[in-house]
Design a protein around this nucleic acid. Sequence first.
DNA 1: CGCCAGGTTGATTTCGCTCAAGCAATGTGG
DNA 2: CCACATTGCTTGAGCGAAATCAACCTGGCG
Lengths: 239, 239
Amino acid sequence: MCPRRRAIKSERVAHLLGDSPEWKVLAHSDIKSLKSALVVRSYIKGEFVFREGDSCSGVHVVIDGLVVLRKAGPHGEPTILRLAGPGNTLGYRPLLAGQNHRASAEALGDATTAFLARDKVISLITDNPSLGLAFLRKAARDLGDAEDRFHHAVSLTVRERVINLLHVLRDEYGRPTGENAWEVELPLIRKDLAAMLGVRRESVARILQDLRNEGCIRMRGRLIELLRLPEIDHLDVRH
Amino acid sequence: MCPRRRAIKSERVAHLLGDSPEWKVLAHSDIKSLKSALVVRSYIKGEFVFREGDSCSGVHVVIDGLVVLRKAGPHGEPTILRLAGPGNTLGYRPLLAGQNHRASAEALGDATTAFLARDKVISLITDNPSLGLAFLRKAARDLGDAEDRFHHAVSLTVRERVINLLHVLRDEYGRPTGENAWEVELPLIRKDLAAMLGVRRESVARILQDLRNEGCIRMRGRLIELLRLPEIDHLDVRH
DNA sequence: CGCCAGGTTGATTTCGCTCAAGCAATGTGG
DNA sequence: CCACATTGCTTGAGCGAAATCAACCTGGCG
């Protein structure tokens, strides 16, 4: 990797950390002093950042690209637990729980992460209680999300879950194109959309087709326009 | 409530806190000084400790009895997120995430909790970083559990999930009766077993009956003997 | 061009839900 | 102490949503 590129990355790392909900509580000086401890790594599409079962040697902050967390299923077909983009921290859960990785992290496309070794994370958190609190807040939110996903998985039809997934992806990756209309460049192929819900790709394809026929959406490959997508989450009682 | 009874409870509270993974990091003196801030409350079967949508005014530590966390489903049938027994802390997630309660807590039988107000929890955690770390560890473990449950919900058959639930309940409430044989006094009626999995009670009843016919279990109401229950969780990669 | 990954579509099967009835245990009021 | 309601559990019959199996289509790319 050429020096020029590393320099650019290093700036980007500092900027991302200063922006991320977990890490931004660190003083700017702390973040600067962190740089030497960070190890920047690049991955090509399909490469693993870590694998299910690995011991957890530290955390990875996503710098560029997207990383999917996959959990292998007993009968084959892995499930996607979540997507991580720039600024998101991977591996903090097993590190803090004192467990091995329980999911694999795989680069969705080309991606870059900054690795921070376990001991450094621990010392940072103990020396810096507000960082611990920030992770506590993050863990609490992630826990809420996970409980919601469980709840949705067992109480909604697949159609409702597909619609819900479109809403979630719209919030993260969409841009408005008009009155209640959105355009979303899906970061996932159909098989992975299905893996996020734990259903078969055929089911997702059929439901998307139905939604198209009903005039709720338009599609061209991974580009989806949401015209008038039914609401699902009437029940979410967020603060 | 008579003074005598309150005194007994107060001792029990201190003992439980000194035993619970989250609270035991507090010095014995700290726990003693906490007593004045704790509000002991008793509930009869079916009473709510808090309700979905309520703002979170603090945490409840279960002293006696069992409390179920229920989340209402869009189409009716609520789902059970988890069971909380003596020593477990309820409501820490919404408090730390800065959200409203997203599940209702309901006394399964008669139960007692010790309530600790929000501000007191916050000040305890900020004054006492190790308490924050203890909750961080708890949140990380709970998150792992929630992700497992999601994964199981979408990748296992209902039969496998019932067997899995029996294993979980066995670990918590069972006692060994011989070579690989266990006896479990289920804390839940069939309907609630089903609610833990997000399935219908009839499905659970049928599957339990199948298991009985196959000689895997014996049943008498809520008492279940596990004779040779198939293993499911080959995949769990715990530390 | 031919290959291959991604996507769609159709036919069939199956698992779990729904609806419905019946039964056992427990409790309650007369 | 019995009549009867209530609650929890089981069982059966039929249905429906999603999985499964199997083609087939499309576009990108070596």
